[in-house]
Amino acid sequence: MRDIDKFRGCLIGGAAGDALGYAVEFLREEQIFSKYGENGITEYSLRNDKAEISDDTQMTLFTANGLLLGTTRGMTRGIMGSYESYIQMMYKCWYRTQTESYPINEDYLYSWLLNIPELFSRRAPGMTCLSAIEHGAEGSTREPINNSKGCGGVMRVAPIGLYFCDKSISYEKSDMIGAEAAALTHGHDLGYIPAAALVHIIRCIVENEATIDDAVNEAVDSMQALFPNAKHIAEFTAIMKKAVMLAKTGNNDIAAIHQLGEGWVAEETLAIAVYCALKYQNDFDTALRVSVNHNGDSDSTGAVTGNILGAFLGYDKIPQKYKDNLELRDLILEIADDLCNDCKISEYGSYRDEVWESKYIKAEFVRNAH
């Protein structure tokens, strides 16, 4: 039975970590602690009364849209392409929000998210993502388009782990969808293996009510089976095991994170997130704070930490301070609910849902996203 609280927790948790970390993304530790005090940033840094999300959460929403668009087309037309092809289409839509102005006046927009003016904000989008999508985002695990292992692939795939919970599709297949979604823009095996692993971790937590420890260990084993010939699979396995070990030894958090890296590349992002979520698995606030107060890619490490721990704890256990003032909170909740409820319209059935059709068939739905 799908638990909507877990779906909401995963996406809101990710957005919360993203928003907390976005304010300090390009600051060194000494700058963070000098500006915010000995504990670093512990509350949202508001702009116009909003905790701003970055490209991490923006692309996460478009990933979710791709999944729902694919299923809806399959159920209403009786035929569909691969999920990654719809995700690719949605990343092209996201690219338009970063390079064009709202509103886009066209008869058909493909994504209803192009009707949300706030998503046209440019929040330090990753250059690899922009460049790859500009050229079509046509990468795959078999035919990589570059050698990037930046974290732009892993930080956006959490909806895939959620969406395939309690579906007949195998873990191997849903993991590969995560890998292929990342490989659209990131061709290094350490650019897409962590994405597949995050998908596995989240699905395992939500579907099986697994502990974070068990989900991580299962994901590592699954990646070894899924990518046995990947050139850097041993490096991935090693850093993940190090993250688990460090989380259990009670080391100083900054020192532990320094051993894992800065999070600019995907395996480091996931390792830091696993460390924080595992060490503080019953304390969302501390986990998020630790995940962003370091030298590295704070919004991405915060986002992935929030995805994992939000899925584990659920939305109701996320502190209210991370819900208040969060930019696009209602939209994020709506997407989480759509992922959980899924498409119920079929080609030959009598069931109708005008809002769903407006979103995922006509792409014309408009809502107040403030």
Results as ranks from 00 to 15, higher is better:
E100A: 08
L61N: 00
S168P: 08
K359G: 06
M1N: 12
R289S: 05
N293I: 13
L226W: 03
K248C: 10
A64K: 00
S350Y: 01
L61M: 14
R47D: 01
D175Q: 15
T63H: 02
A225E: 15
E138Q: 10
K248L: 14
F164K: 12
I201D: 01
Y315I: 07
V265N: 00
A363F: 08
M1S: 15
A197F: 04
M245F: 13
G70W: 11
I193F: 06
I345D: 02
A19H: 01
E118T: 08
C204A: 12
Q98N: 09
K344G: 03
G150T: 11
G314Q: 02
K321W: 05
G187S: 06
S358P: 02
I116F: 01
P103Q: 11
T301V: 07
N307S: 13
H135T: 12
R123M: 15
E267Y: 14
T63C: 08
V157P: 07
D214E: 06
E172S: 12
S121D: 01
I193P: 00
C10I: 11
N208A: 05
N115R: 10
H188K: 10
T237M: 09
S358Y: 04
V216P: 02
N307W: 14
Y351P: 03
L109V: 01
Y348S: 06
G40Y: 02
F62L: 11
N217G: 00
M1H: 13
V216E: 04
I160T: 03
D5N: 15
S298T: 12
S45T: 13
Q98R: 13
Q281S: 09
N39F: 14
L68F: 09
Y44K: 04
W264D: 02
L11F: 13
P125Y: 08
T60V: 15
A255L: 14
A137Q: 00
N229C: 14
G74C: 08
D189K: 04
K50Q: 07
F164Y: 15
R203L: 14
A336Q: 09
H200T: 13
L260H: 09
G66C: 01
I254C: 05
D330P: 02
W264A: 11
A158W: 05
